[in-house]
């Protein structure tokens, strides 16, 4: 008779047991802020479609200190999302080859940051230019 009795360890609380996993779960948690912010934009969209009074009420709601507090936290979460997204993108994109050589991950990540900065500034200038 076999005396084997392989022991399988439980997975409870696994994400707290390694700093790498904590960072992973933080990355996943940024999606809560992303989702709520998209819903706030959706509310703005609906109010825009309802007319000027509704839209101005939405703008007014955005000046509430609770709202500003949420957006500060959401900004931090969005920046963390951006950093982690750009870091893993080279692992997801098909391998790029230039003149028979693999384009290094760092080059891909850096290019994304450059594009992001241009888009951020472009967006801000577009809104600024009244």
């Amino acid at each position: 008779m076999s005396k084997r009795r392989p022991y399988v360890r439980p997975m409870d609380g696994w994400w707290l047991k390694n700093p790498y996993y904590v960072r992973y779960m933080s990355r996943e948690a940024t999606s809560l802020f992303v989702g709520v912010y998209a819903l706030i934009l959706l509310a703005g969209m609906v109010s825009l479609a309802c007319g000027e009074t509704a839209y101005n009420n939405w703008l007014m709601a955005m000046t509430n200190p609770v709202s500003i507090g949420f957006h500060l936290a959401a900004l931090a979460a969005a920046i963390y999302h951006t950093i982690t997204w750009f870091a893993v993108a080279p692992k997801v994109m098909p391998a790029l080859f230039l003149a028979g050589k693999r384009v290094p991950d760092i080059a891909i990540t850096t290019t994304q940051y450059a594009i992001a900065v241009v888009l951020y500034l472009g967006l801000f200038c577009m809104v600024w230019r009244v």
Binding site: Y20, V88, K91, V92, P94, A95
Partner: peptide, 22 residues
């Protein structure tokens, strides 16, 4: 879910996370 730790611990720099996600 692209935790990415596999590539970090690989003693042979295989980068399994890249293989899986590509």
């Amino acid at each position: 879910t692209l935790v990415g730790y596999c590539s970090e611990v690989c003693p042979k720099q295989v980068d399994p996370a890249a293989a899986v996600n590509r």
